[in-house]
């Protein structure tokens, strides 16, 4: 097992941050409520450079809260902190966002809410065959290329 592990506090912070990045809305759950922190955690064990980036983003978030804990801040204050880190540590923050999106949109239950019921294969999708009469107008224009 890799040494690259978030501790419990970091996981809790990541969970809270993710729920601000993708909050709940209508029937879509927040990222922090569907296990995205654990997914990101597992993924980053095998990706050292990305782990360092996400860790840097989490550190920047923690350091931006002064004496308070990010988790204890109001939602508005949390968003303000995240906006600040987005500007002050853009590369790390962008990776944090990307990893959160990766975790969220690969969850089958999230995909189901988006109308996706299974991966692209093996079933694929059926398409109507092409109606060549659609090309009558184009054909009527005649030759459009230059000979050379």
């Amino acid at each position: 097992m890799s040494e690259r592990l978030f501790n419990a506090e970091q996981l809790a912070l990541l969970t809270k941050v993710q729920s601000q990045l993708i909050p709940a809305e209508n029937d879509m759950p927040a990222a922090g409520s569907v296990g995205c922190a654990s997914i990101v955690h597992e993924f980053l064990r095998e990706h050292e450079e990305l782990y360092e980036l996400v860790l840097r983003a989490l550190d920047a978030i923690e350091k931006s809260t002064g004496d308070a804990s990010f988790i204890q801040l109001t939602s508005e204050e949390q968003i303000e902190i995240l906006r600040f880190v987005e500007k002050s540590a853009p590369e790390a923050f962008a990776e944090l966002v990307r990893q959160t999106y990766n975790a969220y949109y690969t969850r089958p239950e999230i995909q189901a809410k988006l109308g996706i019921h299974g991966p692209p294969q093996p079933d694929g999708f059926e398409f109507p065959s092409f109606d060549v009469s659609r090309l009558d107008r184009v054909k009527a224009r005649g030759k459009l290329w230059r000979d050379a």
Binding site: Q20, L21, I22, P23, I79, L82, R98, T100, Y101
Partner: peptide, 11 residues
């Protein structure tokens, strides 16, 4: 450009 995070992300 990634879809914006935060409130309104789903919309």
């Amino acid at each position: 450009v990634p879809v914006a995070w935060g409130a309104g992300h789903h919309r």
